[in-house]
Every structure is written in C-alpha cells, then in structure tokens.
Amino acid sequence: MAKVELLNLSKNYPGRKTPVLDQFSLTVDSGELVSLLGPSGSGKSTLLRLITGIEYPDSGDILFDGKSILSIPPNKRGAVLMFQKAYLFPFLSVEENIGFGLKVQGATKQTIQIEVAKILDLIGLPGIERRKPAHLSGGEQQRVSLARALIVRPTLLLLDEPLSSLDTAVRQNLQEAIRRIQHELGITAILVTHDLGEAMGMSDRMALLLEGKVAAIDEPMKLFQKPPSSQVAKFVGIDTFLKGRVNHGTLETQHGNLTVRTNGFVSDSATFAIRPEHIEVGSELAENILTGVVKDCMYRGEYVEYQIQIDTMVVRARVAMPAAMIPHGEVIKVAFPAEHLFPLTA
C-alpha cells in the first residue's frame, strides 16, 4: 500500500551488448495494479528482481512512498514476489507454507493459525491447512502461493507471470481472484506477463516494455484502441497502416483518398492506423471505401478474419458474427470509418 517510483533504473550483465534495462522509469500509484507487457528479454523479470533486491541496479533509484529502498536488504523491503512456479516448500504443510512470512516476523502460533484460516477463506480454499503441497493441483498451489505472499501484507506485490503455466479455465478463474483480492486489500501491485488479454483484464494501467524502456503506458482501453506508435500498435494486434499526405481532413494514400479527423493538422507524410475490428467489409458500403480482393478468410467463432488485397497492401479485417462468409477471390468494398482512423506519432 504505497506509491512506488522507479527512477532511471539501468542494469547490464557482463557479456551483454545492450543493457537489459536502460534508464527505466515508472510510477505506480498506491493501490494500483500496473502490468508490464513485453517480448521475452525485454527486462521485465530483471526489473522485479531489482525491486525485491535479489539483484542490484547499476544506476537509478527505487522509491517506496518517496523513500529510497536501495539500502534496505531484500528481506526487509516488503516487496513480495510471486513466481511462475508456486515454489511452495515441499517439506511444509499448506498452513506452515502460508504462515512462513508471519513466523519469520515472530508471530505467535495462535496468530498464524487465525490469519492462515482467514486468508484461506479469501483465496477460496478453506480447510486445507494440513495438506502437503504435493497433493494440490497446479491452480491450488498458485492460490496457496498467493496467500503466502498476501499474509505478510506486502507494501508491493510483484507477480512474475504467476499464471502462465496453468490451463485456460484455471487461469481465468485465478485472474479474477487476484484482481478481486488486490482490490479488496488495496495492495499496490506490478504484474509481469506476455499475455495481452491477461494484462488488459487485470490492470489499471499497462506498460509496454521494448528494449529496456517503457514504450507506452496507459489504461488498457486507450492502448488497445489508440496506441501512440506503430511499435505499440503492432503489439496490440494492429497491422493496417495507411501512409500519405494529410490535407483538409483528407488522407491521400497511394490506394485512394480517405476522410480522416485531424483537427486541422496538415502533414506531408502521416501514418494512420485502424484496428482490424473497426474495418468494415461488404458490397453496400458507401463512405470512406477502398476496393480490394478477398485473399483469405478464416472462421474464428466470435469473428471472421479476412485478408483483403488492396493494390499492394494487405488489410486484415475482423467482422463480428457475420451471417455469411464472403468467398475467396471476390471483389469487395472495404470501409475505414473516419472516427476509427487515428494518427500515429512515431
């Protein structure tokens, strides 16, 4: 329950050309859950190790509520890390595992018993105190691991892909549980994941990490619908980019002219993007259209995905629950609604 500030953190390992983290800065408000999203090797896990104190940054500072914690040893920081694997101590019972942090602090047996029972209720596994970790399922193990982290009332909860080894149903269930408990207890948390859906569903804000830096940070909805740069756009699944000259609300591309909302801005080479879900496909469309040929279509259940060739460009469009599919090879109109076309800054 603290405001966490990471200031210009850098970390490099011997033998590596580019630093894992390069002047990395991020602020997480009290009670907020921020997720860090990025390809593997983008420094996500390293960052968590720096915050817990398992590793030390080359430069920069980490502040909890305005105070530097770099000189505090890892076991006194109050930043608890939960790993991809549960790491329950195999020789201890569930109760002893969860109570580990309290016992270390010198809590009495009675207090531990009461607190463990309370937290087992919270994670939805009451009455399993006496069991051994080996007799729990993967999902249950992760829940116990979460309980063990929460029982010490961490200043900051760090989650390092805690759900990536679980199957989809268990995973969704746990995502909801973590989100609910984090809200209830008002814990500041940082979640590392490479799953876009998980990041969007669980976090207040999400940060995209690329090459050791924050490429973008915003609310999930904003990043998903209007990413600021083409790099970020690609990461959230946008691959239609229209380049051209912008003049009086018209984007003049090599494929044809499109109306865009520009608030009067003029540029010789602007790039506009649009989400595949916002592109419309059909024969009766009239506004803001280009004509193309259906190259491929794929039925995905919730939507149909078309690959449409417009001159040299291939556009991916997702149409939600259509009544019929447009066959391969058909000439079709593709509409780019002006309200969904947005400019990229970089």
């Binding site: 398992i54 076991n75 790993f83 982290a149």
Partner: peptide, 17 residues
Amino acid sequence: DENYEYQAIVLGASKRR
C-alpha cells in the same frame, strides 16, 4: 532451484534462516 531461497527471502526470512 534457487528460487526457493529467493521466495523465502522476499517473504522476510534472513539469509541465515
């Protein structure tokens, strides 16, 4: 797996413990 040790440390255990 050294992470067992890291897990104990971040939960507040001293190096000795």
